[in-house]
Write a protein that binds this DNA or RNA. Structure first.
Length: 267
DNA sequence: GCGACAG
DNA sequence: ATCTTGTCGC
């Protein structure tokens, strides 16, 4: 992939104030509406074809390309893996790495892990139809979380998938009740989100998987939000279409597994 | 001042 | 995120 907005490269040496200022610019550049020419059902189709036979799908290769990205950490550097999936089959893998120069700071995650991700994506040959990042996108203090930052850097459709809520208020308390598979609860901007009006839908809780009997065993919902060029509702559709019976989207699971072995020196 | 805070 | 095995339940 080729950088589209190099001026937004996540330079870890910037001051916190400069990082925040950049995020405000990124949020203004970001598009939180559908601009991708991607049909959620095309992704669902790709997944169902999946188990059937990857080999054939790989040969055909005309479905949308979804790229999952994930990071892992070592002593003092971050490694990133990008896995491209088309018609349910892995068609390419790319790795990246970058020294860890700053600690984890809520709201500034992209400046800690971003360089490794950029490194990986720049070496990716295929042109993704959708990027799936592990973290928030629009659900962010300045509407410029990791998924939005990366999406804007490459001007590619992107969504963020997180396991925990960074900020914002769900329209319904999710702590009290376990959601059923497929359920979604909107997350609205509140005072913590400085760049848009309170009440704006900035993402959703999405229950990608749930056990039949929530009594003893339950699964926590995902927190999904638009990264770039995808609306909040479609973000849920995309994530739903890429989850194949597991809590996390398939592209993310692949990236997870690969980056794990890479970080442990297994590859 | 205190709490909250993706990975 | 990471340090880490088995174990309980679906």
């Amino acid at each position: 992939m080729e950088l589209s907005a190099p001026e937004f490269l996540p330079d870890p040496s910037l001051s916190a104030a400069e990082m925040e200022a950049m995020q405000r610019d990124i949020a203004e550049t970001a598009v939180f509406d559908d601009d991708h020419g991607l049909d959620p059902s095309a992704l669902a189709l790709a997944d169902s074809i999946n188990a059937a036979d990857d080999a054939q799908a790989t040969l055909d290769g005309d479905g949308p390309v979804v790229v999952g990205v994930d990071q892992a950490f070592r002593e003092d550097d971050a490694v990133s893996a990008a896995v491209a999936i088309r018609d349910g089959a892995v068609v390419e893998r790319a790795y990246g790495a970058a020294d860890l120069e700053i600690p984890y700071i809520p709201g500034l995650l992209a400046f800690r892990e971003g360089s490794a991700i950029v490194d990986a994506l720049q070496s990716l040959a295929v042109d993704p139809d959708l990027l799936v990042l592990d973290g928030s996108g629009r659900i962010h203090y300045r509407e410029a979380g990791l998924a939005t930052h990366v999406g804007v850097l490459f001007d590619a459709p992107a969504v963020g998938v997180a396991k925990n809520l960074l900020c914002g208020t769900p329209v319904e308390d999710v702590e009290d009740r376990h959601l059923a598979a497929g359920e979604r609860v909107a997350i609205e901007a509140d005072d913590e989100v400085e760049t848009c009006a309170n009440g704006t839908t900035i993402g959703h809780y999405y229950q990608s998987k749930q056990y039949d009997t929530p009594e003893r065993r339950h699964v926590n919902p995902l927190v999904v939000s638009p990264g770039h060029r995808v609306g909040a509702e479609t973000t849920v559709e995309f994530v739903a279409a890429t989850c194949a019976g597991y809590k996390l989207p398939e592209p993310t699971r692949h990236a997870d597994a690969l980056v794990g072995e890479r970080a442990r020196g297994e590859r």
